[in-house]
């Protein structure tokens, strides 16, 4: 039953790979993990996730679960990173963008965001 849908998803994904991130052309000092997570042209994590421990995480979306007490749930940081790199491995139907797989963020940016989220 689910195969039809997954096929459509995969096809769409492949088409998406060729896109260029227009926003990544910025210059100046590199952003911190937190800045990258907040930046709507980068991680834009607040579009979907609340960060209850961050007082400046204003008007977060509700599409994803709050990011809180991450170390209690992701004892292995590599698994946290893998979730951000491609959440579709764990949940093919997820609405969360595959930040690494689709090259929305660079590997280095994902490392920084992982460190930040790990500390939440």
């Amino acid at each position: 039953m689910c195969n039809h849908a997954s096929l459509i998803f995969v096809a769409g994904l492949v088409c998406g790979l060729g896109m260029i991130n227009a926003a990544s052309a910025g210059t100046g000092t590199p952003e911190t993990g937190k800045q990258l997570a907040y930046d709507s042209d980068k991680g834009n994590c607040l579009a979907c996730h609340a960060m209850p421990e961050q007082s400046d995480a204003e008007a977060p979306g509700t599409m994803g679960p709050p990011l809180v007490a991450m170390q209690a749930r992701y004892r292995d940081k590599a698994r946290l990173r893998a979730e951000i790199w491609n959440p579709m491995v764990n949940n093919p139907a997820t609405v969360m963008p595959p930040f690494g797989k689709n090259k929305i963020l660079t590997e280095e940016e994902i490392d920084k965001i992982t460190d930040f989220v790990d500390g939440l």
Binding site: A5, I8, F9, A11, G12, L13, C15, G16, L17, M19, I20, N21, M63, M88, A93, V95, P97, P98, N102, K103, I104
Partner: peptide, 17 residues
């Protein structure tokens, strides 16, 4: 239902799920 664009969203991502 097709995931399109770099972010890998479909219309359904936002208007169904």
């Amino acid at each position: 239902y097709a995931r399109r664009g770099q972010l890998g969203f479909s219309c359904a991502s936002c208007h169904v799920m």
